[in-house]
Amino acid sequence: MYKVTIKPQWQVQAPNGEPALVRLVELLVGIHETGSLARACARAELSYRYAWGMLKMGQNALGAALVTSTRGSGARLTPLGEKLVWADKRIAARLSPLLDSLASEIEVEFERAFAPAEAILRIHASHGFAVETLHRFLSRKQIAADLKYRSSQEVLASLTRGNCDLAGMHLPIGELEAPMLRLYAKWLRQGNLHVVDLATRRQGLMVARGNPKKIHGVADLVRKGVRFVNRQPDSTTRALLDLLLARENIDGRAIDGYDNGEFTHAAVAAYVASGMADAGLGIETPAQRFGLDFIPILQERYFFLCPKAVYDTTAIDAVLAILRTSEFRKAVNALPGYDARHCGRVLGVVDAFPELRG
């Protein structure tokens, strides 16, 4: 099976029309992550002399220093250098799920040239790190999967139209489950569906390291001087925030940044880590990856919906076999905030969500 990888790349053009950043951002990211120009050069496979020349050209084109270096203390980025690095991280966090979906489509086109279309597993899912892990395991097993990341509403609509075999979404566990279920009941009550558990994960507030704004819950988001970054309007995490705010009798319009929406948890984390916001609601994994503090609020359940007509197929059998392996569960449990103890469990919709009875 062919594997396709697509990575975002960007550059800035100076006022004179010359490109100011050709591999320069890659070098700056290396300095940021290693604290050393020499180690950044080794990682990028650039000579030390060439890298210094690249830095000087970039600084001349942009009109400001990008790196400071002192004997014995390594290299440090200037504020401008930091801004370029965090711009790169935000671009990657925002585009990676989209590019992963596109790469999956291209892989499927390769596969269709060698295998019948019905052999390709169609997965439409709300973005999540356990889903990414499953996709990697499917690739290792040479199982062709067309993975598309969508909002939960789009996923359910796709399932209803018969355009996917597995529909991945998430719902909160506890008192907010029932009101959230009501948002999706018209799809879930259609019957003829199996629920396949993937994992539980923690949702909470992502804040800067040390929590300088002393944010401890959604009630603190309305305080003056607190900037928030939200998710897109049709996402389940956005709906979850609205339920949390309603529980506190808070109008979302009172929050600075309520209308600023990002499309993934990682993009929210990058937004906060770059200093553009003080808090965002999301899961724990990207918070840790971006060096943020995480304030847990609740657990949620991530699962797949599978039509009964598709359930008894070799493709679904292969997925269930992967989900039930200790190797896969270990990989998911290694993700901060994730718990795979029920991974691969299969239930009827009403058994999984008793609130749907009647």
Rank of each mutant, 00 (worst) to 15 (best):
L95P: 01
R150G: 00
G174S: 12
G63Q: 06
F110H: 11
K141A: 14
F129A: 06
Y302M: 13
K56D: 10
Y184T: 01
A44P: 01
V346E: 03
A44G: 05
L138I: 14
Q299H: 15
A352N: 08
D242W: 03
M276P: 00
D146F: 00
G257R: 13
A279T: 13
G252P: 07
L221K: 07
K224D: 14
G358K: 15
G35P: 11
I6S: 13
P179Q: 09
F294V: 15
E327P: 04
I173T: 10
A115K: 12
Q13W: 12
L46S: 02
V229R: 14
D146M: 10
H124Y: 06
A266R: 05
A40I: 04
V195K: 00
G261H: 08
L37T: 10
L102H: 01
V346N: 02
V108K: 01
R223I: 06
L320Q: 03
R94P: 00
G72D: 11
V195C: 02
M206G: 02
G168R: 12
L205E: 06
C306P: 00
H265L: 08
I283G: 10
Y302Q: 13
W10T: 14
L292P: 03
A145M: 01
E300K: 12
R94E: 11
I91Q: 13
K330P: 06
H342K: 15
H32F: 06
H135D: 10
D278C: 09
